[in-house]
């Protein structure tokens, strides 16, 4: 009734899942309803708002613009994987400290996008932070504290890196 399903195997946040999915099933729906990883949110389903941003093989992507069949064999990370231990990650902690979230709906997408940026550089300018996050919409914060939080997280991560090199 739901068309021919295709078996896929995917690793999400380090855990392997095998499921059969209809080709048209969007990755966002697969994560949310099939795997019950509901931290990834759908704000527009047409690729504009960025709330559904996840990481596919180490690079951010819109899960509303990807079909679940396409991630067969891939390694995914979602917001639920950002703080596997009790401690929040540096970016999450900076969001908390700087009041960079209000309703929290867009937050997982921002966290994933910020993480991508800081994986590429720990010395971003404010301008670079703004450009890197411009594909994520937030209606609550005016972005002011999000930008501050990412700058602050970069600083913390730089300090950690320096400390670990001592």
């Amino acid at each position: 009734m739901t068309g021919d399903k295709i078996d896929i195997s995917v690793t999400v946040n380090g855990r392997r899942y095998r499921r059969a999915v209809e080709p048209r099933r969007l990755l966002a729906d697969f994560l949310r309803y099939d795997l019950r990883l509901t931290g990834t949110h759908v704000g527009c389903a047409h690729g504009v708002c960025g709330a559904c941003t996840v990481s596919i093989d180490g690079r951010t992507a819109r899960s509303c613009l990807t079909f679940a069949v396409q991630v067969d064999g891939a390694e995914l990370e979602t917001v639920e994987g950002l703080a596997p231990d009790a401690e929040l990650s540096a970016i999450q902690a900076a969001f908390h400290r700087n009041h960079a979230l209000q309703c929290g709906f867009c937050t997982p997408g921002f966290l994933m996008a910020a993480r991508q940026l800081l994986a590429e550089t720990l010395t971003p300018t404010e301008e670079e932070v703004r450009t890197a996050l411009s594909g994520n919409l937030c209606r609550c914060t005016g972005y002011v504290n999000i930008v501050r939080a990412v700058m602050s997280a970069a600083e913390d991560l730089r300090a950690n890196r320096e400390a670990s090199h001592v």
Partner: peptide, 9 residues
Amino acid sequence: NGHPATRHR
């Protein structure tokens, strides 16, 4: 063109 997350794909 777009944003990092769209240019990755």
